[in-house]
């Protein structure tokens, strides 16, 4: 079985892209299972179950960032999907962290970027883009060809090796090359490892200390004047 992680900011078009991909995989006779990870609301699981009759699950990450939640639950999810007899486990995650990557070593990682979100988006999303294998650019129907070219160049600047698929996901245009890469990708390989290096560590805010100002905290602290992190008291 192949496990494919699809990340991207909310409303970037992940669900719309995956809908077309799953439908095309189904026509080729492949069985997909679908897992949605989100912070507090998602209906993709019912949507995909109704439309394609495939096994689906969803998990709310709540307190954790969805990327981290992904690391926790993915092992179980792969077992679940294998029991369901799926050829593909497709995971849709919000990827809100922007400091770490949600992708697994050896498996296909996809980032969905909306072309309408401005020319600087590729410079802002960090490892979610730089560690992905495919960048799916959506909503090309809404912008000029000139902007598509600049956006593409910015994606390549952040991730020189990445393969780019430009799509109008609303009308299902540009989906075939993505499906091809799904089929060509490697099967899951144990032990499973997260791609890239996770961020420096937990800070005192993350564990619930709410006072404002670096003097109130310890471990990784940072005053406004210093652009570099340093170890405090």
């Amino acid at each position: 079985m192949k496990a494919i992680i699809c990340a991207g900011t909310p409303t970037s078009g992940k669900t719309t892209v995956l809908k077309h991909v799953i439908s095309k995989l189904k026509k080729k006779g492949h069985r997909s299972a679908f897992l949605k990870i989100d912070v507090q609301y998602a209906d993709e699981d019912t949507l995909f179950k109704e439309e394609f009759g495939i096994p689906t699950r969803k998990v709310y990450s709540g307190e954790l960032c969805p990327d981290h939640c992904n690391v926790m639950v993915l092992g179980d999810a792969i077992e679940w999907a294998e029991k369901e007899g799926a050829d593909f486990l497709i995971v849709e995650t919000a990827g809100l962290c922007l400091r770490c990557s949600p992708y697994i070593e050896g498996s296909l990682g996809i980032v969905v970027l909306e072309a309408t979100s401005g020319m600087n988006l590729p410079r802002k999303v960090g490892p979610m883009l730089s560690l992905a294998d495919i960048a799916v650019v959506t909503k090309i129907d809404l912008i000029s060809q000139a902007e598509r070219e600049v956006f593409r160049a910015r994606v390549l600047e952040a991730a020189p090796e990445i393969s780019i698929a430009e799509t109008d996901a609303l009308h299902g245009i540009g989906i075939d090359p993505i499906v091809e890469q799904f089929c060509k990708s490697e099967s899951v390989n144990y032990p499973l490892y997260l791609r890239g290096n996770p961020p420096v560590g937990t800070c005192t805010i993350c564990v619930g200390k709410k006072e404002i100002g670096w003097k109130q905290h310890f471990g990784v602290v940072r005053p406004l004047e210093n652009q570099n992190f340093y170890r405090g008291e």
């Binding site: 401005g118 809404l142 912008i143 000029s144 060809q145 902007e147 070219e149 600049v150 593409r152 430009e166």
Partner: peptide, 25 residues
Amino acid sequence: NVSNHPIALITQHTNFLSDMQVYKF
């Protein structure tokens, strides 16, 4: 690659969405 695409289509809805300066863009 869009840069190799030999066709430019300017539709009834095509718009610029980037807030870059005209010159810089």
